[in-house]
Design a protein around this nucleic acid. Sequence first.
DNA 1: GAGTAGATCCTCT
DNA 2: GAGGATCTACTCA
Length: 202
Amino acid sequence: MEKLPVSFYRRKNVFQVARELLGKLIVTKWDNVVTSARIIETEAYAGITDKASHAYGARRTSRNEVMYAHGGVSYVYLCYGIHHLFNVVTNTEGTPHAILVRAGEPVEGVETMLKRTGKKKWDHTLTRGPGNLSKALGIYTHHNGLSLNDDEHLLIMDDGFRYKRSEIIASPRIGVDYAGKDALLPYRFFIKGSPYVSGKPK
DNA sequence: GAGTAGATCCTCT
DNA sequence: GAGGATCTACTCA
């Protein structure tokens, strides 16, 4: 079990990083309470040429500033006034690429996740969808900009688990209809057959 | 089971 | 002042 080196995030190919994040463990440790989940769904946001990205057209604001940082930090942002969306910033400084982590399988601290989400029992809705996932892991906007490598509270780990290439599916992203034809791009990666994958079950 | 409306607040124009 | 990288519940069939 090792945390991912910054070189993992700083590669140029955001799609490759998004694909390789599948199967990794996202671990949070707040006040010595540990929760973790295995990533089974991601979406790539490819910088200034991607209409669905906050950084489209090289926009640079106080909200998305952290996307321009070097790879390996978190980008957490509140959507629809309710949902906290957890992203991983990739590539080098000045290139605003990011990967939205959309879903995971609960691994550790399920009791804590149930308490956070107000659910009675563990079912497939616990960490399905970016809003639920970050709620279950206790991630909020004030965790924006944390390093995934140096900080002890928010980490992405590699425990050696690998999905087969045939288990990984690419598809259009969710909830980005406003992006025109860019909404059709296959920038979403998920594990075939997982009940935790968001969107319509196949 | 499928479709739709409502929640709810921060950010940018 | 408007709209968004969403989720849930409720309606109707």
